[in-house]
């Protein structure tokens, strides 16, 4: 027999899935704008505002479910995770808007090398899609795969910065726009990774971040590329020769 709380949980799931769809569309459209030079900012702004409203709706629904039914165990974990996941989807929308804003600010980018952005975007979008699927199917294995892909995006971003700093003849407009877009894609990948962690938490009760913190420094570094960079010796981007 369904419980009264199940109606609330099912509403919550529907809002999250709506957000997933909208945020996926926003990121894909921003990248389409990058590839084709099409103006997309107005459309993406509208979606990003819708995502903001849906995030508020998630918060209200979650609060109501907690107040009415005092959820525990897997119900409580699900609600806690939904709050964080809805914020993740909202962030996807905001980063898509940030990318659209870069396109607007810098104008025509047809002379810029687009390969690295396109490659990184393909990975980030795939991670986003995987995070949605992992959430839908409660697929822990898929969630773990997202983490491995995060390193590709991080490396692309950092290598681009390293190359640009050491290339004084580079086109400033291309360098800056590419840097900004890669930075936003890197953030999108991070949030997809977090959603994967939350799927693990919903399903198993295991908090991935707590696990990471509990590892000795060396092992922790191996868990993600980002951690390694944060905690390892920083490598200067600029070698001072130019």
């Amino acid at each position: 027999m369904p419980r009264l709380m199940d109606m609330g949980l099912s509403k919550l799931t529907n809002v999250i899935l709506q957000m997933a769809e909208l945020s996926k569309k926003s990121v894909a459209t921003s990248m389409e704008g990058f590839r084709n030079g099409r103006t997309v900012i107005d459309q993406i702004y509208q979606w990003s505002e819708e995502l903001r409203e849906l995030e508020d709706e998630t918060n209200e629904l979650a609060t109501e479910i907690i107040a009415r039914y005092q959820p525990v165990a897997s119900d409580l974990r699900y609600i806690e995770a939904c709050l964080a996941i809805s914020n993740g989807f909202f962030r996807f929308g905001r980063y898509a808007y940030d990318i659209a804003e870069v396109l607007q600010m810098f104008g025509d980018l047809s002379n810029c090398e687009k390969k690295i952005v396109e490659e990184t975007a393909a990975t980030a979008e795939e991670m986003l899609q995987m995070s949605i699927e992992a959430f839908l199917k409660r697929d822990v294995e898929l969630a773990k795969k997202i983490k491995l892909m995060d390193d590709i995006v991080d490396t692309n971003y950092r290598e681009h910065i390293g190359r640009s700093m050491n290339d004084p003849k580079g086109d400033l407009k291309c360098v800056m726009s590419t840097t900004l877009i890669l930075r936003y894609l890197e953030r999108i990948a991070d949030h997809a990774d977090y959603i994967g962690d939350l799927v693990v938490y919903i399903t198993t009760g295991f908090r991935v971040t707590n696990f990471r913190k509990s590892l000795p420094l060396g092992q922790e570094q191996q868990t993600t590329g980002k951690k390694a960079k944060l905690q390892g010796k920083p490598q200067p981007f600029y070698d001072g020769k130019n």
């Binding site: 419980r3 959820p71 525990v72 165990a73 897997s74 119900d75 409580l76 974990r77 009760g205």
Partner: peptide, 14 residues
């Protein structure tokens, strides 16, 4: 209450 190990406990408290 957050992460019961036993399925029976989980079902009872939820």
């Amino acid at each position: 209450f957050e992460n019961p190990k036993n399925e029976l406990t989980e079902r009872y408290i939820t």
